[in-house]
Design a protein around this nucleic acid. Structure first.
Lengths: 156, 156
DNA sequence: GTATAATTGAAAATGGATACCATTACCAAT
DNA sequence: ATTGGTAATGGTATCCATTTTCAATTATAC
């Protein structure tokens, strides 16, 4: 009997195809991410997984997240508060892309999807030109706004 | 005789006006930033300052940088390699804005000014709308591209 | 000068992330 | 089924940029 059961989830194929094993820790980390409504830190994920599978270690969470990022299934986000956050990448979920609005007061993050099409269009155009000019193979871009949220404007 | 000489630099007024003292450590940190041709880490700055004023501590460098960022004289940049970089903010230098192209292979950063006007225009428009929609007081934005530089594409 | 508050710096603490390494799970070929 | 090789795991120790602490020093107002 295999110790690690195999779910039949949409990501299973990505693992097989990449030559990676879909183990229980990986499976459960993906499930946590799939059910998350917000961006989770590595520790958030560790705690959530740990509740169900207490023998999954923090190291494995970090390693798995790195792997998932490398596979393109997960996006690693750094909002500048000293700990990275992770979310299923949009292409994975088949969801409309979004960008972020970050409150520098309380670190709250708001996802927005407005103007995304315009943003993507401009970015795509710039990307093409910059690639040529600097001989850079661009893989990723970032648009983000920083400021104070409703609550933090009225504090102090 | 004051131990800390006072330069008559453009930033002196900003200090006085803000109720801050313009001390020698602060003065020298600003000079290092002013002469820098690239983004410097806190340690870079510490070493540069330390060469001239060996009794300036790393703690003070960090504290001063925080202050300068808060005053708007300096921009803090996080390229994801685990240490922050600092540069005089464009408005301080009266220079054309630029954005960054970051190599995920070697962490090299290329500044580009192409398309900046278009970027700024779009960002300004979006900014206005998002401010209204989320009641967010936006203070800052970020556009950045990640990828592999010329050298890193050919490695491996 | 003196008082007062700001500023400093050395050392210690913090905390997210990583390296190390012995152990375990998986898979393919016998 | 057994085996041998490789991938994956998890606990601990460690790294390292950044903060905190706190006593000593310095700048400014009086």
């Amino acid at each position: 009997m295999p110790k690690y059961g195999r779910g039949s989830c949409w990501w299973a194929g990505r693992f097989r195809g990449g030559g990676y094993r879909l183990t229980m820790p990986r499976q459960s980390i993906l499930e946590v991410l799939d059910n998350a409504s917000k961006h989770l830190s590595a520790e958030d994920i560790y705690l959530a997984v740990h509740k169900i599978y207490p023998n999954v270690g923090l190291t494995t969470v970090y390693r798995t997240l790195d792997l998932l990022v490398q596979m393109g299934l997960v996006s690693k986000l750094d909002f500048g508060d000293g700990r990275a956050r992770y979310e299923l990448s949009e292409s994975s979920k088949g969801v409309k892309q979004h960008h972020h609005l970050v409150c520098t007061g309380c670190n709250r993050v708001i996802d927005y999807t407005d103007f995304i099409d315009e943003e993507i269009k401009l970015l795509g155009r710039i990307e093409k030109e910059l690639s040529k000019k600097f001989n850079f193979k661009i893989t990723n871009h970032l648009i983000r706004f920083y400021g104070l949220c409703n609550e933090c404007q009225n504090k102090k």
